[in-house]
Amino acid sequence: MTTPDDLDLAAQQSTALGALDAADSSEALEAFYRAWLAPSGVTTRLKRGIGRLPAEQRAAFGKDVNALHTELESRFHQRREVIKTRELAARIAAEARDVTLPSRPRPAGAYHPVTLVMREVLDVFQRMGFSVFESPHVETDDYNFGLLNMPADHPARDMQDTFYLDGERLLRTHTSAGQIRAMRELGASGTKPVRVVLPGLCYRNENITTRSEIQFHQVEGLLVGRSVRMSDLKGVLLQYARLLFGPEQRVRLRGSYFPFTEPSVEVDIRCTLCAGNGCRVCKQTGWLELLGAGMVHPVVLANGGYDPAEWRGFAFGMGIERTVLQRYDIHDIRYLFGNDLRLLQQFR
């Protein structure tokens, strides 16, 4: 129903603007819209009531109503922006949380630290052109000892306490056991060069203590060619050390003994903890033992199918666990295969 009062547009405007100012939330603003601007709102109603006006007033009134609608709409939009901004700010303020509260649980797995170091070593050697060659854990006495120039009763067998399954079969004591297999399988009866690394689990019959275990991982390297020199061994291991530990690394060779290499050496690298200045880990020497190595013994080359007069090679073998202990400051090797989850989960 349009009353004469309703037609007082100035009053209407004043009422509307008062209501708009009073609306201070999105909901109130919505209500204002419904009351005034929606198709069911006041401005529409006013337009519909136009017919009851004398004909000469209709045009002017219509224009005024439209002006009112436009004005209210514009004020409404302005007001809505203000409210939106205010409400967003309020919401942001309300949502703020203490970021130091605990996180939500999320499952996380982890590698065994031996895997981490083993992979790192293999990755470097693979980048240097070595292929991965794997051989069995249970070996014959021949592959583990005899063919490596360690016949029965050889003094070098004292260096390794062996788990035997019977007189002939044993658990490999070193990955060198795979050397002959690699030469025979990849060397094509002594006609092709070989460049492989042999990773794997090895076994020794030792007491389990903080420093020694009955199983451990080794990586053996074997390179056979027609002109391989001991200086190549040194160069390859220097490159390895530099790829792994940085361009400043240095290596040094010390005399040693392995029945399957001659000459045999221990290879040291600059201590990675003290950069060679001397520390507890390197026992103040500035050097860390990296691995044992040497030029493949002619007997071993011959057993691998090569003519030692024509072919030469070098081999090296390193333990993984020692690096694991050093790098992660683990003082008891028994944690590694004892699998104390409180230790292993630190690698997550």
Binding site: G225, S231, D232, K234, V236
Partner: peptide, 15 residues
């Protein structure tokens, strides 16, 4: 120590 550091000088199998 007197042994220098060199790289193999022949063609070897790639990885």
């Amino acid at each position: 120590d007197r042994i220098p550091e060199t790289m193999p000088s022949e063609a070897l199998p790639f990885h």
